[in-house]
């Protein structure tokens, strides 16, 4: 947890990241940035999915519809926050010459998305409408 707070402080004091280690090859920084952007797109897609569930499935029961939408939106928020955090940690690891951080977030996100998809299948099959 203290590692998380440390990187949280880095979010808002960007000059501190330059105090550590050496500047890596710019191509690695750019690759890290593209990974960050790919995660951000995933987050945007999840948020868009939340809007879509709310907007295009008006016949669903209120609880199911709101629950699904909130699950997707929460996943989107988590994904965006984690994108910044992971980017900072990778950047710092590259500067210090350490191994890149590993993360279980991709598996958790994949399971969550699979769960939402399963719920959708059930909803469609059993027609929990109106």
């Amino acid at each position: 947890m203290s590692a998380f707070i440390q990187s949280l402080r880095l979010w808002f004091t960007p000059q501190r990241i330059r105090d550590e280690g050496e500047t890596p090859d710019y191509r690695f920084s750019l690759a890290n940035e593209r990974t960050f952007l790919a995660w951000l797109r995933t987050a945007l897609a999840l948020v868009g999915g939340g809007f879509a569930v709310d907007q295009f499935l008006p016949d669903l029961r209120w609880g199911v519809r709101v629950g699904l939408a909130l699950a997707l939106l929460a996943a989107g928020v988590l994904c965006a926050l984690r994108a910044v955090n992971h980017w900072i940690r990778c950047e710092r690891a590259m500067r210090r010459g350490e191994d890149l951080p590993v993360s279980r977030f991709p598996s958790v996100l994949a399971l969550a998305v699979a769960l939402v998809a399963l719920v959708m299948v059930v909803v469609v099959l059993f027609g929990w409408a109106g």
Binding site: L10, W11, F12, P14, I17, S29, W87, I88
Partner: peptide, 9 residues
């Protein structure tokens, strides 16, 4: 130069 943390945030 690398992306600034502020832009990422």
């Amino acid at each position: 130069a690398a992306l600034t943390p502020r832009a990422a945030v």
